[in-house]
């Protein structure tokens, strides 16, 4: 039952973040959505993922606030919708509904999720063992990607003005 409550909160927050015009409310809804997904993970027994999700979502929400303030969007006045925007939103809604339908049809063969805690995957040791024994290459690729992104992000966002003598 509690899992469905969290799912409802998460979905409401995602809807609010998608359609809210004021960026600060949208960022708050984005944070609530991330916390809600973490809470769903917690109810299914994935504490490890829940904590990662909460940390990542909070850091992302903070960085969204930082960048929206930097770009002047945080307190920007709300712009009125134009006809073209309604059309674009309608088409994107169709696309989004199509995406959800494809997932739903694809998942029909799977058994229904029960919010019953399982011992499997409940301890960090088993997850760490699988991660390092079965997915070592993926882990290395991820580590290299994170490293390259740090370096590349710094290069892309570098200052190119006149250097002071």
């Amino acid at each position: 039952m509690i899992g469905w409550v969290f799912a409802g909160i998460t979905l409401s927050a995602v809807i609010m973040a998608t359609f809210e015009k004021q960026i600060r409310r949208a960022i708050l809804a984005l944070w609530v959505a991330g916390i809600g997904v973490g809470a769903i993970y917690l109810t299914v027994g994935a504490e490890f993922l829940a904590i990662i999700q909460w940390i990542v979502s909070t850091l992302i929400a903070i960085s969204f606030i930082f960048f929206s303030v930097m770009f002047g969007e945080y307190n920007a006045p709300v712009q009125k919708n134009q006809m073209g925007n309604y059309l674009l939103t309608g088409l994107s809604l169709l696309l989004g509904a199509g995406f959800a339908t494809v997932i739903w049809i694809g998942a029909k063969g799977l058994s229904e999720i029960s919010f019953v805690l399982s011992q499997e995957g409940a301890d960090l040791a088993s997850i760490g063992r699988v991660l390092t024994q079965d997915h070592l290459l993926s882990l290395e690729v991820l580590a290299l990607t994170l490293f390259l992104v740090l370096v590349g992000g710094g290069v892309v966002a570098r200052y190119e003005g006149e250097e002071s003598s």
Binding site: T18, S92, W104, I113
Partner: peptide, 15 residues
């Protein structure tokens, strides 16, 4: 049903 909610979250991301 929970899978549909996950799909809806992804779909709203597209929107």
């Amino acid at each position: 049903m929970m899978m549909l909610i996950a799909g809806l979250i992804g779909g709203l991301g597209l929107v």
